[in-house]
Design a protein around this nucleic acid. Structure first.
Lengths: 138, 138
DNA sequence: GCTTGACTTAGACATTGTCCATTGTAGGAT
DNA sequence: ATCCTACAATGGACAATGTCTAAGTCAAGC
């Protein structure tokens, strides 16, 4: 986390209380917050932070490649700070819980040339959907 | 398409001009329209159709399993009438073009038990991202 | 400790989607 | 063929999420 702040400062990022708070909120494993959730938690630490700043900062972190946008549910974008270790997502369709997962194999190899329509493919996203133990047990 | 209307009628779906128009708009291969685009095309055929009806009808078609919701971009949901042949999507990050693709292999097998967190997995979505020939050529 | 340009703010606006009360109508009953 | 009635459509308000702008504020270099 502090390494994140260091990295950003090194890239000429101006350090402000707001940006620090947003970065702190996004710390951790299996963290996938919506912009609104980030804002709520940021407000708890810094009451006067505005929605626009949270959106701006999240957008900047995404551009800098420090945070990933994920669209696991169809409502709001979620922000995943685990951007430096490639991974996929496992989502509970009931409660929305999300876990980072690391499948073996390379899905790209599974797509025949004939199915590529001449595209230059740069990335593959995989989302596993199902029920978490709690929701399945009910 | 008319088989779709037949199937729906058989399930007790009341047939109205609006529903017919929405179903017609969704006909074809590699069709992935947003709700708004569906509405725009439906209006062209039936000027008095309302937004709410389009949303309702799309929701019903999804519930009935005749149409899939896909979230390839983070803006609006898209509707894919190709619900009866399992497939994945290939998306151009520049222009947003979407193609249906059929990868070999089973991505589910690539997820080790240790990475399943006790989830019951029922579905896997794969999205290939890149550039289409037109956008890559530019 | 100034200065300055980048950052933040509040709130208006935009887009996408949902809800509800009212009006209309498909399709079976007569 | 006409009537009934439950189901469907309408339009407009509302909600959720995200974007933009003008004006004020402040971090960081001098």
């Amino acid at each position: 986390m502090s390494d994140l702040l260091e990295r950003l400062r090194g890239r000429g990022w101006r350090m402000t209380a707001q940006r620090r708070v947003v970065a702190e909120v996004l710390d951790g494993e299996h963290v996938h917050l919506t912009a609104d959730e980030v804002h709520a938690r940021a407000v708890a630490k810094l009451p006067e932070i505005s929605r626009a700043t949270v959106y701006n900062t999240l957008g900047e972190l995404v551009s800098l490649g420090e945070v990933l946008e994920v669209a696991t549910d169809k409502r709001a974008k979620r922000y995943d700070p685990n951007a430096h270790r490639p991974h996929q997502h496992l989502v509970c369709g009931q409660c929305g819980a999300i876990r980072d997962v690391h499948p073996k194999g390379n899905p790209l190899a599974d797509l025949p040339d004939a199915e590529r329509f001449g595209f230059t493919i740069s990335d593959v996203e995989v989302t596993y959907r199902g029920l978490c133990p709690t929701c399945a047990g009910a």
